[in-house]
Design a protein around this nucleic acid. Sequence first.
DNA 1: AAAAAACATTGATATAAAACAATGTTGAAT
DNA 2: ATTCAACATTGTTTTATATCAATGTTTTTT
Lengths: 230, 230
Amino acid sequence: MAKYKQANNCKTCPYKSYSLTKLHESDVDLIQNSCLIVNFKKGENICKQGTEVTHALYLAKGSVKLFIEGKNKNLILKLVNESKYIGLQSLFGDRIYNYTITALEDSQVCMINANIILDLAKNNVEYLFELTKNISDATNFVYKKIIDINQKQLRGRLADVMLHFSENVFESDRFELKLTRKEIAEYSAMSMENTVRILNEYKKDGIIGIDGRIFTIKQPEILRKIGELG
Amino acid sequence: MAKYKQANNCKTCPYKSYSLTKLHESDVDLIQNSCLIVNFKKGENICKQGTEVTHALYLAKGSVKLFIEGKNKNLILKLVNESKYIGLQSLFGDRIYNYTITALEDSQVCMINANIILDLAKNNVEYLFELTKNISDATNFVYKKIIDINQKQLRGRLADVMLHFSENVFESDRFELKLTRKEIAEYSAMSMENTVRILNEYKKDGIIGIDGRIFTIKQPEILRKIGELG
DNA sequence: AAAAAACATTGATATAAAACAATGTTGAAT
DNA sequence: ATTCAACATTGTTTTATATCAATGTTTTTT
């Protein structure tokens, strides 16, 4: 799989989680001692749908996609960039991953023994509270996604997705998407061909700019309108 | 809206939540003193999408549907029967309901001031842990739903839904569904006409029995196969 | 540098599912 | 008891979207 090394200083790590501020120093040490920093190459699986949850996964550096594997096609639920936990809710639920996470670029993941995180959570309510907020937000995000898939049609969905990338994921009107057209399709729950078609439609209409995988949102208001109309 | 009364004994209440066993007696008193038992008539909204979360909602008696309101149609995410919290994750996230909950029959809901539950959770990690498990399970459930909508077609989806009612919601091969055909459609993410058509197809093929709103699962294995094939 | 593989594009065709329409049935209200 | 409204059913038509197909363009591999 990948090279790994022992974490050596979580307290001063520039990529550390906000939730660590809720822990005692000795608890951070506990995490640090259990924490393996694993390097994943682009395309490698960080966790696999259907397998047991043995570690909490914290994406220190890089970016990943989290997706559900179906029979014929996948559904990408979200992209996650550095300094975020990935897939927390699997820790508290049935302890089986119901999604796969794959690196979109070379990434560093801190893997912390699941029981250590659970023990800390059981003994530090502020810490658990942070994690719970995290999980709740993830749930709310999926609620938005499900209604998008169920209620909007292709153009509206893709408009929403492009806006979401720009405003929430990259926070810029110009961004490089580390996704193939097929993956944009899997994120938007549509076929690859239609994704290409509609993106180029938007380009022709001057709503977005496309240069390979670099996208520019030129008329966000129009995209927003398309998204609202469905 | 509805008649209400002050709760008078949560400790001996036959419908009480398992999570109460994690609390001290004095904390249960705190909940009890804040707890209003509200009677909702069939069809009444218990909470409304887009409004602020001011109370934790515990369904003591009755049954409800939890659904996302869209522009043209709704999507029912789940049915909940008595002795369950409804909509916990909204308490820890952005404190806005992103769904509406409506009574399917006359129901009793315990409404407890949200801040009291949050304070208890912040001071009792075992209690919070129970709530977090609850939220995680809800998230995992939505993951299954989203993949169903995205990947299966009508027949597979409806087969899954009927099995789910039988095995998870009512735990019987014969059950009375408190839903109109339109609501079954909203639960299965399809049109009402196709819901009727396919249900009657299954009936004609001897896979299920239909008598008004009473359904009998006659050949669960066949339903399961249809669901698996998608 | 050449070959192969993965990715992107565009048009034509097929199809699953929604929308429309018409009619029957049940249940609630007066 | 009668009327009205909500609910259920069935057939027909339309449409959004996937699938198929052909070709061009990058990347990666050797």
